[in-house]
């Protein structure tokens, strides 16, 4: 197990370095001088631009700039926003909770809908319930979440006046965004769990548990659900980054103030330090979560440890 952990950590380090490199390079491939962008509104003289370039270290050799960037990064300093002149880390931190809550709630929706639906469908393949579950998951995979979001708003807030489409800080206003984002992942989980349950029910240990006289419910909970949940955990964990970016877009639709709407406006206004910071934060969060998922799965299922070593 220790070897496995070390190996996984070792594989994550170059990825993190790579992410910081991509973020660093970003500033240098964007057309235009960052110093000019910052002073854009100020009708800057060439001297002002030259001074600012020096302050920003833009005249230093590239490796030096990257070293500075990396050192700052380790200290949690992500630079200053071009627009508001406030530290990027503060701006990101103040908006992150909203996005993370939406991400977590969507994952919860996916698991709470997908796992039971898959379990029920897999228990009786070909039954009415199974057919319904398969149609739901088939549609779930094909409906883009931004479209689903609009349909849900149309139905539940415009027509039925049941739920608010606009963020008012309550848990109730989280329902529509979380369901529209989580639904597609619920569909993936349904298909995944269904397939697993069918396999598990045919397996030798289920047969022997039944032969020992275990009740059907006990077999389902102890053998089938447990073994089927491993790939479900892996899948939803690996989807974290995608759900996070999905959450960012869902925010834009529902007018929630989170990382996504911030990132989107920063891209259009070429506020590069913010884009850079967001790339680093989202990228590293993704790596950390993946690592966590790998380790959890490794702890639950010893077979994956061997597979990784082979």
């Amino acid at each position: 197990m220790l070897l496995f952990v070390v190996r996984r950590l070792g594989a994550a380090i170059p990825v993190v370095i790579g992410i910081t490199l991509i973020a660093f390079v970003l500033v240098h491939v964007v057309p235009g001088d960052p110093a000019k962008v910052i002073l854009y509104g100020a009708n800057a003289s060439p001297e002002q631009i030259a001074t600012l370039r020096q302050q920003l270290g833009l005249d230093d050799p590239l490796w030096r700039q990257y070293a500075d960037f990396a050192v700052n990064l380790v200290h949690g300093n992500l630079g200053t926003s071009f627009l508001t002149q406030t530290p990027v880390s503060h701006e990101l931190l103040s908006r992150a909770p909203s996005t993370l809550i939406l991400t977590a709630t969507s994952m919860l929706v996916a698991v709470l809908v997908g796992v039971p639906l898959g379990l029920v469908a897999g228990m009786r393949p070909g039954s009415v319930l199974d057919t319904v579950a398969r149609w739901i998951s088939f549609a779930g995979v094909a409906v883009p979440y931004f479209f689903l979001a609009l349909l849900l708003v149309l139905l539940f807030s415009v027509k039925l006046h049941l739920l608010s489409a606009i963020d008012d800080g309550t848990a109730k206003s989280l329902v529509l965004p979380a369901v529209s984002l989580g639904w597609g992942y619920a569909a993936i989980l349904t298909r995944l769990v269904r397939g697993r349950v069918i396999d598990e029910l045919r397996s030798d240990y289920v047969k022997s548990a039944r032969a020992r006289g275990s009740g059907e419910l006990r077999v389902l909970l102890r053998q089938v659900l447990r073994n089927s949940s491993v790939p479900a955990v892996t899948t939803i964990g690996l989807q974290f980054g995608n759900i996070l970016t999905g959450a960012a877009i869902t925010e834009v639709i529902f007018g929630r103030a989170g990382l996504g709407s911030f990132l989107a406006t920063s891209i259009t206004s070429k506020n590069i330090p913010v884009v850079q910071g967001a790339v680093v934060v989202i990228g590293i969060a993704y790596v950390v979560i993946n690592l966590g998922v790998d380790l959890i799965v490794g702890a639950i299922d010893p077979r994956t440890r061997q597979e990784a070593a082979a």
Partner: peptide, 17 residues
């Protein structure tokens, strides 16, 4: 692997930025 470690949409957004 570095690119695989980033969400598809984020890569796309970086590029469009």
């Amino acid at each position: 692997d570095v690119f695989l470690a980033l969400p598809v949409l984020l890569i796309a957004l970086i590029l469009i930025a």
